[in-house]
Amino acid sequence: MKAFKNNVTKCRREFDKSVLQIKSEKSLQELRNHYLSRKRGQLTLLFEDLMALKPEQRPIAGQMVNELKKDIQEKLQSLKKTFKTEEEVVERTDFTLPGKVRYWGAAHPVHLFQAEIENIFISMGYSIEEGPEIETDYYNFGALNFPPHHPARDDWDTLYLKDELLLRTHTSPVQIRVMEKQKPPIKIVIPGKVYRKETPDPTHLPMFYQLEGLVVDKGITFAHLKGTLEYFLKTLFSEKIKMRFRPGFFPFTEPSAEVDIGCTVCEGKDEECRVCGGSGWIEILGSGMVDPQVFKNVNIDPEEYTGFAFGLGIDRTAMFAYQISDMRFFYENDLRFIRQFLLK
């Protein structure tokens, strides 16, 4: 019985396959003969096999063959309509006409790239935090160890609103807000919009996206910062990416480090390289060990806990990753630009 059932299935499959290859009235006739000829047609053969089964199995088997026969007849009948004789080829659908493609909306590339970065950190056990864009001078500067009236503030050209209120110049204030209410261990990334008093040009914008990271626990070292950022950059770009850590300055980290990646466009060989300016290196991240004063400002004992922080520009990094020559493209919202990233 099992063998019989298999034969029926096999016969059906073969028919379905052959049907697709039918191109003319003639081959249709041949197919009909092959399956339905009373003398040697495939179905006739199946009926003969059926007779060899035990009597109690025959009704079910018969039903199977009948169903198959009905299906074959119907299909052949419908095909016949399309293939009259060659002279009377009537109008029939041109199946090479374009198929209907539904319009699928595109995510903004900055959000796409942001998710890509976030996912790397989420896979390392980080959680995501957010904070306000309108900040106070204290959270944006004071708590982060910028002394009042210090020229270090000039490096962060600030847009001011009223009194102590300003548009945050970095995502770092969220570090403070999180540490104020959460005890270590802390392991977070903070994405968001930040603002600077910059007139738009190919590499500067008054608003862009940053992603900040913060890890605080007992026994966190600079070596952990290096290990984390190396893993992150290799995952984001490629296993082969070159990178270097060099001393930098941020009021809220000590020691501070800037992270460069090797220019993948010229590999340091083109003195006129548009991407790296000929140095062979591109500044990609600012980072460092959390400054003890920052810990004191949020009542965490810097003798007991250490931590590291880092930050990068999401749009800037995307620019480098995709070789986008002008940062303004991201906020012109030209759909010819945005929709390309559907293919990402």
Partner: peptide
């Protein structure tokens, strides 16, 4: 003290500091 440690790190060479993965802690 941290400021002095940065001085030492700068001249020791950031490149000579090893890279480790932080101990696994998932708050």
């Amino acid at each position: 003290e941290a400021d002095l440690i940065e001085e030492i790190a700068r001249f020791y060479g950031y490149d000579k500091i090893p890279s480790h993965f932080p101990p696994l802690c998932v708050p």
